[in-house]
Every structure is written in structure tokens, then in C-alpha cells.
Computed example of a mutant assay.
Amino acid sequence: MNIDSQEMNNQKNNQSVLSHLDGNGDITMVDVSSKTATTREATATGQVRFPSEIYEQIKAADGMTKKGSITQTAHIAGIMAAKRTHDLIPLCHPLPLDKIGLTFAYDDAISSITVTGIVKVTHRTGVEMEALTAVSVACLTIYDMTKALSHDIIIDNVRLINKTGGKSDYKHA
């Protein structure tokens, strides 16, 4: 066996453990029909970091811009995004979400707004992608609402914090 064939076999073997690839490495939507519906919840977070003078300007205005409230607009956008995750991420299942919650916290130490999203469903598949999508779109909306003040805004640290339900739970260390 030459190196190229060996590497291809290794890649095939590694790909077979990814949920959206079948044993041949072909893309597939996960079949959840045999799974039991359980209550599943996921929490994600992300940050929007600003230059300190811009952050102070946003805080002094209580998050209001000419476009309206930064966090209220981002809240609605995050909820809408979570509900449409299956339209954005090709292999996600459409889910009847039971809860979508977003919170926004100003962090003076690093001139940022932290967005946290919690999504809950009773179904046969989890809601990690919905929580991550809600947070990502909320962060993007904050960027959109404040880009007139500066383009030196950084969206950072979007990640899953925890998930419960299904075959395994997860908690970020």
C-alpha cells in the first residue's frame, strides 16, 4: 500500500466517526428516527469587543444608537436565527424549539458585550447549533448596529458552554 492509499484509508476511518458522514465518507443527514425524545438544552456564549473609547460611548448612550437599542435588536435577531438554523446549516434538523433565551452583559474590563444564549427542546436531537447560531447572529447584529462608530470591532469566543439531554452531556471546562 502506498502512502497516498494509506492516508486515504486513514481519512476514511476518521471520517466514519463524524456524524454527518457515512462509512464511505459521503455526506448524510443523521437519522434520528430511532432515538428517544428527551429534553435537551444547550448554552452558548460569544463576545463583541470594542475599542475602549467606542465601548464607553455605547455604554454612555445606554446601548442606544440611531438604529435603536443594540441589545433589543440583537435579542430579536438571535431568536429569529435560532428558529431558522436548519435553513442556514445544511444538515441540521428543523426543530420545534421550546425556549430561546438571550442575555447581554457589559464587561468593562475588556470593553465588550457578552452574549449568552440558551435553547431548549424536547426532541430526538440536540440544540447546540441553534444556541451557537443565536449567539453568532446576535453578535453580528451588535456589530451591524455599531459599525458606524468603528470597524475595529471583534466578534470573539463564540463557543458551546454546555449541553444536556441525549446520549451525553457536555460542560466546557
Score class of each variant (00 low, 15 high):
89 I>Y: 00
136 S>A: 12
102 L>G: 03
81 A>W: 06
97 L>F: 02
133 T>N: 09
20 H>R: 04
76 I>D: 05
73 T>H: 13
55 Y>V: 00
55 Y>C: 00
106 Y>T: 08
47 Q>T: 08
130 E>L: 03
136 S>F: 02
134 A>C: 06
56 E>T: 06
77 A>T: 12
100 I>H: 04
122 T>W: 02
84 R>F: 01
59 K>P: 11
58 I>A: 03
95 L>E: 06
137 V>N: 08
48 V>L: 04
54 I>M: 00
67 K>C: 13
132 L>S: 04
124 R>E: 11
97 L>M: 04
106 Y>I: 07
63 G>A: 05
30 V>H: 10
42 A>C: 02
27 I>W: 09
118 I>Y: 15
19 S>N: 13
67 K>I: 10
45 T>G: 09
52 S>L: 06
73 T>L: 08
63 G>L: 09
78 G>F: 06
64 M>V: 11
48 V>H: 02
36 T>W: 04
53 E>I: 00
90 P>V: 02
19 S>Y: 11
94 P>T: 05
82 A>M: 12
23 G>V: 06
130 E>F: 02
31 D>V: 13
54 I>W: 00
113 I>R: 00
61 A>F: 07
118 I>M: 08
28 T>W: 04
129 M>E: 11
102 L>R: 13
35 K>N: 03
49 R>F: 02
127 V>P: 01
128 E>N: 05
